[in-house]
Design a protein around this nucleic acid. Structure first.
Length: 468
RNA sequence: GGUGGUAUAGCCAAGUGGUAAGGCAUGGGUCUGCAAAACCUUGAUCGUCGGUUCAAAUCCGAUUACCACCUCCA
C-alpha cells in the first residue's frame, strides 16, 4: 500500500483517494514572465514522476497545473520586452510547453490560466467578504488571517512568532491598508499601467493565492487528493490557499500536501532562484545536455530532497541512461537467434522484480530504492542477453518491463535510432573483411564509424551497432 | 526570534536496534583477433562528543557546519 509524507501532519500516511482509482491532483505552476529555470523544471518533473507512478499503479490522474499570467513580473517583462502582457504570457507559455515536452513531462489534464477565471475569482472573493473573512480597503481586498482558526497549521507557524517583514518583500504602503500585517491580498486595486479588470471594488487584479483556490475548486472539486508545489510555497502560499478555500467551502481543501525540495547550485548549495539570480534556465540546460539525461537526473532523486546541480552529476545520469539503453538493445539483438515461447524462470523473475519495485516506490515514491531494483533487474537482463539459448517472449517481457520502469522516470527507451545506408554498407564490408581475417581493414572501418558516432560490437550472433 | 531540513566510501545515495543496498568513477580479472558491451572482483563503521543497550548509522542528550521558509521565489 502506498504511503505518502504529508506536510500537514509531518507524517507518512496511507494513501486513500476520495474516489476509487482516481487521483485529483493540483500542482502550482509557474508565473509565465520568463523561461522556467532548472528549479521550476525540477518541481514539474517531481510531480510528473509521481503522477506517472500513480498511473503505473492503475490510477486515473486528473492533473491540474496553473499558469499565473498576471502580476508585477509580467508587467515588468512587458515593459522591458516592449510587448503586451498577454504577449508575454503567450510567449513564455509556449516556451514552457517546449521545454517541458523536451523533458518528457506529460501535459497537465488541463492548464488553467488566472486571466481566464476572473469572474470566478471575483465571486469567490465576494463570498469571503459576505462570510466575514475578507474586507475591502482602499480598492484592495484582504483576507483576515486570524479569523481563520487553523491559519498556520500547514507550516506549523505560530502567528505571534512570525517575524513581520522577514522576507523583506512587503511594501509598507500595503501593510498600512491592512487590519493586521499577516492579512493577505485577495484583490489589488489597479496601479498605473497595469492590466486591470472591473470588480465590485473598482478596477484591479487578483492577488496571487486566490487563483489556485478558485481553479482547484473549479476543475477538481472542493476537496482534492494531492496538492503539490515547491517547499517554498508552503508558507505563505499554500497556507493562504487553505484559509481561502476552507473559509469558502467549509470543507477540507486537500487530503495530502506534497512539497518538493530545491535545486541548489554553487559551493554553498544555495537555492537556485530567480530572485537570487543564480539560475540556469531549462532552455539553456536542454541545449547543453542530452534531454533524457537531464530528465533522469531530476527524476532519480527523491522529490523531497535537494538536488545539487552540477555538470558531472548530469553526465553521470547520462551514463546510467546509457546502461539501460544498451541492456535493452542487447536483449533485442538476441531476437534473431531466439526460440519461440518463453522461459518460466524469466516470467517469474519479471513478476518478482515488478513486485520489488512497487514495494520500494510505495514508500513515499522512494525512487532511490526503486532504481536499485531496476539496476538489479538490468543485471538479470544482461545475463540473459548472453545466455546460450533464449526465448522470444521472454526477451520481450524483459524489455517491456524495463521500458515501463524507465517511463515512470520520464525516460522513453523506445525512441528508435537508425543508420544511414552507407554506414550499413560499411558494416557489411567490415564483416566480410573480418571473415577473411583482414583485421587492418576491419579495424579501419570500425575507427571510421566511431568517428561518426557509431559503435560496433562483435558478438557470437553477429555485429551489433549503437549510436554513441 | 520562530519553524523545518541536511550531514553515510572519490562522487550520488539507501538504510529508524543486530555486525553498512544500489549506481557512477577507479584498479584487477574473464570473454574478444584486438576492441566494445557484459560478467566477476576491489573500497567506508556512518559530522563531533557523551549516554542508554548484550547490540546503534539507526534511541536519548549536547555540539558543529550548511541550507530553506517567516506575504506573491518551484
Amino acid at each position: 500500500m502506498l504511503q505518502v509524507y504529508n506536510t500537514m501532519t509531518r507524517q507518512m500516511e496511507p494513501f486513500k483517494t476520495i474516489e476509487p482509482d482516481v487521483v485529483k491532483m493540483y500542482v502550482c505552476g509557474p508565473t509565465v514572465y520568463n523561461y522556467i529555470h532548472i528549479g521550476n523544471a525540477r518541481s514539474a518533473v517531481a510531480f510528473d514522476t509521481i503522477r506517472r507512478y500513480l498511473e503505473f499503479c492503475g490510477y486515473r490522474v486528473d492533473y491540474i497545473s496553473n499558469f499565473t499570467d498576471i502580476g508585477d513580473k509580467l508587467t515588468r517583462t512587458s515593459a522591458s520586452e516592449n510587448i503586451s502582457v498577454a504577449a508575454v504570457a503567450a510567449k513564455y507559455i509556449a516556451y514552457f510547453d517546449e521545454d517541458t515536452a523536451a523533458l518528457n513531462i506529460k501535459p497537465a489534464t488541463f492548464h488553467p490560466r488566472a486571466t481566464d477565471n476572473i469572474p470566478d475569482i471575483i465571486s469567490f472573493i465576494e463570498d469571503l467578504i459576505a462570510k466575514g473573512y475578507a474586507y475591502e480597503s482602499e480598492g484592495d481586498v484582504y483576507f483576515r488571517a486570524r479569523r481563520f482558526k487553523d491559519y498556520g497549521e500547514l507550516s506549523h507557524q505560530s502567528l505571534d512568532r512570525l517575524e513581520v517583514g522577514a522576507s523583506e518583500r512587503t511594501a509598507d504602503e500595503e501593510t498600512a491598508r491592512k487590519e493586521d500585517p499577516i492579512d493577505f491580498a485577495l484583490w489589488k486595486g489597479q496601479k498605473a499601467d497595469e492590466v486591470a479588470w472591473d470588480s465590485p471594488w473598482g478596477a484591479g487584479s487578483p492577488g496571487w493565492h486566490i487563483e489556485c483556490s478558485v481553479m482547484s475548486g473549479k476543475y477538481l472539486g472542493e476537496t482534492i487528493d494531492i496538492h503539490g508545489g515547491g517547499e517554498d510555497l508552503a508558507f505563505p502560499h499554500h497556507e493562504n490557499e487553505i484559509a481561502q478555500s476552507e473559509a469558502h467551502t467549509g470543507k477540507k481543501f486537500v487530503n495530502y500536501w506534497l512539497h518538493n525540495g530545491f535545486v541548489t547550485i554553487g559551493n554553498d548549495d544555495e537555492k537556485m532562484s530567480k530572485s537570487l539570480g543564480n539560475f540556469i534556465t531549462a532552455h539553456e540546460a536542454l541545449q547543453k545536455f542530452d534531454h533524457q539525461a537531464l530528465r533522469f537526473f531530476m527524476s532519480a532523486t527523491h522529490y523531497r530532497r535537494p538536488i545539487r546541480y552540477t555538470e558531472a552529476a548530469i553526465e553521470e545520469a547520462q551514463n546510467e541512461v546509457q546502461r539501460f539503453k544498451i541492456a535493452r538493445a542487447n536483449l533485442l539483438y538476441r531476437r534473431k537467434d531466439s526460440q519461440a515461447g518463453s522461459d518460466a524462470k524469466i516470467t517469474a523473475l519479471v513478476a518478482d522484480y515488478r513486485k520489488k519495485f512497487i514495494t520500494a516506490m510505495d514508500d513515499d515514491f522512494n525512487v532511490q530504492n526503486g532504481l536499485a531494483v531496476v539496476h538489479e533487474f538490468v543485471g538479470e537482463m544482461n545475463q540473459y542477453a548472453v545466455a546460450e539459448a533464449v526465448h522470444l517472449d521472454s526477451l520481450i517481457d524483459l524489455v517491456q518491463q524495463l521500458e515501463a520502469f524507465l517511463l515512470i522516470f520520464g525516460v522513453d527507451l523506445t525512441v528508435t535510432e537508425s543508420l544511414d545506408s552507407d554506414v550499413a554498407d560499411l558494416i557489411v564490408q567490415r564483416d566480410a573483411a573480418r571473415a577473411n581475417k583482414d583485421y587492418a581493414t576491419s579495424d579501419a572501418i570500425r575507427d571510421e564509424l566511431a568517428q561518426r558516432g557509431v559503435v560496433l560490437e562483435d558478438t557470437p550472433q553477429g555485429t551489433r551497432w549503437r549510436l554513441k
